[in-house]
Design a binder for these strands. Structure first.
Length: 290
DNA sequence: CCATTAACCTGACAGC
DNA sequence: TGCTGTCAGGTTAATG
């Protein structure tokens, strides 16, 4: 479900009630998500202060004042809800609801955190493709989760020279290359489709056949589409919501994603087509994406 | 080594 | 109402 903009939206919503605050209570309702919770998960969090809440690729990372970092991945259907205890509060740009007593008791509410903000944070994940673990802060880049991750697409280092270089040897379609977390970390199905559309590049074109000019255009469109999506609070096609329950708005700005059969917004008189690549839907305009 | 596919799991929706 | 089949913002083990 969540790609970089959705995870970033969740991060910004959690920040005021997590960063600089302590976990007063932590509760897990089952032994695992996609993988088991690590040993002493609750114990290693309880009483700890989060010094920094940040993001790498589609992972949320909460650095603890104990040399460890809580890692959260939302998988396809994972969601975070924030309730402030007692009354409605306005912290930052979000208005958080007071926690009804049943908050955190839903069928798919698997983890409940309470912080001294005070706030109750509920992790809900029907499909359980999400993941939570705890790793040593100083050694994150040596772990299996982070070792192979590619560049952050919103970083300065992500430029046309980088993209051209990583695409040059690949005979896989550009759609698959851009979706590969080892190449660029954080893009997923929606934003790859949208960036390719904006760059007028066919998703079927082989990565090594992407011209230098197209690679430069892709860098620009990838950054732009991610920034636009973050500004819109992400895309709410089914599961994604902000931590206060509000929906993201970017799906209304999508040119091609989930728009099979509709006219191409470039007014080229083409029609948006859906194909399957690497087992996932790709949406594009066959007329203006070459 | 590289690239594609199947599997993980539940819910929503379309069609009969 | 209820069945069946399909699909979903991701990752990864197995397979070719």
């Amino acid at each position: 479900m969540p790609e970089l903009p959705e995870v970033e939206t969740v991060r910004m919503g959690l920040q005021p009630v997590i960063e600089g605050h302590r976990f007063t209570h932590v509760l897990t309702r089952r032994g695992d998500l996609r993988v088991p919770f690590p040993k002493n998960f609750v114990k290693r969090l309880t009483g700890r202060e989060v010094t920094r809440l940040w993001r790498r690729a589609k992972y949320l990372l909460a650095d603890l004042n104990a040399g460890e970092t809580l890692i959260i991945h939302l998988g396809m259907s994972g969601r975070m809800s924030v309730f402030t205890e007692g009354r409605e509060r306005n912290l930052g740009r979000y208005v958080y609801e007071a926690a009804p007593s049943e908050a955190g008791h839903g069928k798919h509410d698997h983890v409940v955190f309470e912080t001294d903000a005070p706030a109750r944070i509920v992790f809900t994940d029907p499909r359980r493709f999400g993941l939570m673990t705890i790793l040593k802060t100083g050694a994150l880049n040596d772990t299996a989760l982070f070792k192979g991750l590619g560049i952050e697409p919103l970083s300065e280092e992500f430029d046309s020279a980088y993209l051209a270089k990583v695409l040059s040897g690949k005979k896989t379609p550009i759609k698959a290359a851009l979706s590969d977390q080892r190449v660029i970390a954080g893009l997923g199905n929606i934003y790859v489709c949208e960036a390719l559309f904006r760059a007028r590049t066919s998703p079927k074109r082989l990565a090594k056949q992407v011209s230098l000019k197209s690679a430069a255009a892709l860098v620009t469109t990838i950054k732009a589409v991610l920034r636009d999506a973050i500004k819109a609070g992400g895309s709410s096609l089914r599961d994604h919501k902000r931590v206060d329950g509000a929906l993201g708005e970017f799906q209304h700005h999508c040119a091609v994603y989930d728009r099979e059969g509709r006219p191409c917004p470039n007014n080229c008189r083409g029609v948006v087509k859906r194909i399957v690549q690497s087992g996932r839907s790709t949406f594009y305009c066959p007329k203006c994406q070459k």
